[in-house]
Write a protein that binds this DNA or RNA. Structure first.
Lengths: 113, 113
DNA sequence: TCACCATATACCGATATCAGAATATTTTCA
DNA sequence: TGAAAATATTCTGATATCGGTATATGGTGA
């Protein structure tokens, strides 16, 4: 058996620094492969392949427009990662710990303005 | 070139589900290799090796006590991961977005009771 | 239809990973 | 001193990954 496939989860997809840069770039909005190539200085096949992995775990979506493809960030796919790490937050910041309590409280009153 | 080494960052170390389970288990406090073997049902060499990776990226520390070793979670090493994911939080939750602002405000007033 | 642009895909070689099994190391206690 | 306990290390084989280069695919406009 080998290492867990990069296309298994967001955790594995996001482990690669280059893919994180791609997501950072897409945080500004849709982008085309060519734009990403130029902005990040990666090679075109590199960008395409990394986007392929991100797509496999649903971290990005594509919109076809003629001969170019607009890639878009799909934030919610990062939530599992966020949730997991957040459970350790209290470990390094007591203040955040108290904020978590506040958050939990706000969540339960969701929908009651 | 191959995949980024698991011992490169917290991102790569944490990509493996088994290592995440180990960290979860250590969230309750110090634990011995044997205890982790029993609690998680992993093999002893598996646990030792995974702990080795986690140690390499400083996610855990060890305390030697006779012939056993007490492993302890080092939460702050997860902060880079937390910080990165958190920058995408607004993507899926406007409410949390506003909480972030509150947090930022609290941070700046740190030390002024 | 043909040349061209944008992107995807295939192939390559090098490498680190992972589980498993066996074994080494160190400490304790009788 | 010697056996047993706790943990680390080594070796193996299978495999997916990654960058690079080359090439395929498909849409576009003259």
């Amino acid at each position: 058996m080998a290492r867990t496939a990069t296309t298994t989860d967001a955790f594995n997809a996001v482990a690669e620094a280059g893919r994180r840069q791609l997501l950072d770039a897409l945080a500004d909005g849709e982008a085309t492969v060519g734009e990403l190539v130029e902005r990040l200085g990666f090679t075109q096949p590199q960008v395409s392949k990394h986007l392929g992995v991100l797509r496999a775990v649903d971290l990005v979506s594509v919109r076809v427009d003629g001969r170019r493809r607009w890639y878009r960030l799909n934030g919610p796919a990062l939530q599992p990662v966020h949730d997991w790490v957040r459970s350790f937050e209290h470990t390094w910041n007591a203040r955040l710990d108290r904020l978590d309590d506040l958050l939990a409280e706000l969540q339960t009153t969701e929908g009651t303005p």
